[in-house]
Design a protein around this nucleic acid. Structure first.
Length: 104
RNA sequence: GGAGUUGGCCAGACAAUCGCUGCAGUUCGCUGUAGAGGAAAGUCCGGGCUCCUUCGGACAGGGCGCCAGGUAACGCCUGGGGGGCGCGAGCCUACGGAAAGUGCCACAGAAAACAAACCGCCGGCGCAGGUCGGUAAGGGUGAAAAGGUGCGGUAAGAGCGCACCGCGCGACUGGCAACAGUUCGCGGCACGGUAAACCCCGCCCGGAGCAAGACCAAAUAGGGGAGUGAGCGAGCCUUGGUGUUCGCACCGCCGGUCCCGAGCGGACUCCCGGGUAGGUUGCUUGAGGCAGUCGGUGACGGCUGUCCCAGAUGAAUGGUUGUCGUAAGACAGAACCCGGCUUAUUGCCAGCUCCGGCU
RNA sequence: GCCGGAUUAGCUCAGUCGGUAGAGCACAUCAUUCGUAAUGAUGGGGUCAGGUGUUCGAAUCACCUAUCCGGCA
């Protein structure tokens, strides 16, 4: 997963994407204790990511996605994180489309 | 109104909708229901629970330390006593022992505790420098210098004597006690500080921790249970074999100890499993909550009724909208479970104290 | 979840049976040199991580707190 993925990165998150054989999208979270020390803050980040993923899961069908947090995400508010994630989802879809075109 | 102090409460609520985790039901579409904290935190103490033979003792090691009570237990809590701080409400208090012993007390100072005498004061001797003796009132040093004040006394002085205060011991009174009282007597005073220095005294503590432990079970290594018997020496019985009694041993196992005791095991035969990855379980009904009542100053306890209130395992509580509300927050996320302590933190209420103003 | 250790000058470390906090490197000034380096001399710089207590006196002893590092798998 970590070797074959397409990366998308900003100051809040690193997002890895890869095709899967299924129609259902799958989400993995890697929220490190090193970048975010407090348990409540880690839970908050995970909730925001899950909610955003749930709302966009139709567009992300057929992808495996792993989200890794960056130090800046600890202090970010909900709006900033949502904007960042939406941008990442967009890039994931583009990466998938590009790959499909290459194959065909 | 301001400043302070003590105690207590809350941790947004309600509704709609889209989602998450457990449980129950299901016509497998879904439906119903429950779902983080006062600190869940730090891991500083005490227990429950599980395993280690954990049963006793010795020695280590650690903890606690005014008294009484509460408690499963505690280093916690309640009530009381002593000491200290504050004008006060109130707060703080590791608060046993320094005449069992050892150590330390820098610098300064004559001297830092067995004692002793630098300046001084007084007396003898000497023309004098001085020397011999008495003294600890005064000076100076220091954080600390061997009771304080006054009077008497003396060569000068000194608890040397007396009065008051202080101190120690004993009796008496009050109190369960710590302790207090000062009514009394005795002692002229002998006893510096430090035990969060070693130590002594009293009391307490076996170790590890749910990543404990148990079960299912690919792989791999060889082990586990049951039954029977037994080393050496001596005595007794017996034709012999055998049996029985006593003594002496060796090795391993107390996760701290080259320790002691108790206990278990050692050889042979028979039987079968063993347990790493992974999974299941332990896993939530408990020193439980709530209400009433009784006892107690209180911590708390008794009785009655009633309720079931998170159990995840890449680890669940959130998003949007509306109403109330000035506003929606602060610290912060259960991981075996309880009782405390400590730390972080939002808003509010009540009692009490001091100060200022008005009446 | 459980258990250890560390924190001292700008940096790396001494000092842990209490008594005015030191060393090396670095920094500044001076000397040396035609000048620089090297060398020598002098000097500055510390809330001993923070707080409370014990003590006459605390970097040192005790307790609490903060930050960092490590072990158990």
């Amino acid at each position: 997963m970590f070797e074959k993925a397409t990366r998308s990165r900003d100051k809040y998150f690193t997002v890895l994407t890869r095709d899967n054989q299924d129609e259902v999208p799958r989400l993995g979270l890697a929220i490190s204790k090193k970048h975010c020390r407090k348990a409540t803050a880690r839970n908050r980040i995970k909730r925001v990511i899950r909610e955003s993923f749930r709302q966009h899961q139709v567009q992300l069908a057929g992808l495996d996605i792993v989200v890794i947090n960056q130090p800046a995400a600890t202090l970010a508010d909900r709006g900033a994180m949502n904007d960042s994630l939406e941008h990442h989802w967009q890039r994931c879809r583009e990466a998938k489309r590009k790959k499909k075109n290459q194959e065909s």
